[in-house]
């Protein structure tokens, strides 16, 4: 008799094909349908066996949803399923041009913070959004079409930096608002 095996991967759990391109509405729908079945609120009146199983399922569904919903986490997870190490902690050899760009962003943020220039920050935010969108398109090409895992891993590493800078800009904007 088969029953839920907690080694099932996130895509399998949510009934989705294992690829980077993802229909967000479909992901939401699948997640909601599963939670509607397994959430602890559904079994609060039942015995401890049911409640325990429910918590495990709902926890797994949340983890799957959170991982797949976020593009960087989704790309990293896909590579993990393909046994590719993204080397985010070990491989710090980034192209010089990329590092240059990072420094320029950081300097621009520091300057905008110092001069309390919200418009400059918003401009930076716009630029970064575009840059991130390019990376995501690149990830889709590498993961879903070209099957170039090494290129995808490199994109994951640089996307991680871009997300960090994006968060710094949001923090700076937030600090200006208050």
């Amino acid at each position: 008799m088969s029953h839920y095996d907690f080694h099932k991967n996130h895509f399998e759990l949510l009934g989705l094909a294992p690829r980077f391109h993802l229909d967000a509405a479909r992901l939401d729908q699948a997640y909601r349908e599963i939670q509607a079945q397994v959430h602890p609120d559904r079994v609060a009146h039942l015995g401890s066996a049911e409640r325990r199983v429910s918590m495990q399922w709902a926890t797994a569904a949340n983890e799957a949803y959170q991982t797949l919903r976020e593009p960087l986490a989704r790309a990293r997870y896909l590579l993990h399923l393909r046994n590719v190490d993204t080397q985010e902690e070990t491989n710090t050899a980034m192209p010089a041009a990329f590092l240059m760009e990072q420094m320029e962003y950081r300097e621009a943020i520091a300057e905008a913070k110092a001069t309390q220039d919200a418009h400059a920050l918003e401009r930076l935010e716009g630029q970064l959004k575009e840059k991130i969108a390019q990376h995501l398109a690149g990830l889709e090409r590498a993961l879903d079409h070209a099957h170039d895992d090494a290129a995808a891993a490199a994109l994951v590493r640089s996307l991680r930096f871009l997300n960090k800078i994006s968060a710094e800009i949001a923090d700076a904007l937030d600090a200006l608002e208050q």
Partner: peptide, 28 residues
Amino acid sequence: NGLTVEFASRRMDASVRKALAGHRIEDV
């Protein structure tokens, strides 16, 4: 409670499968 753990687990599995049955396999 101990005797019903396995049963609870199978019931949960069956209900999830039923919920996702409508759009089970995404075109790959």
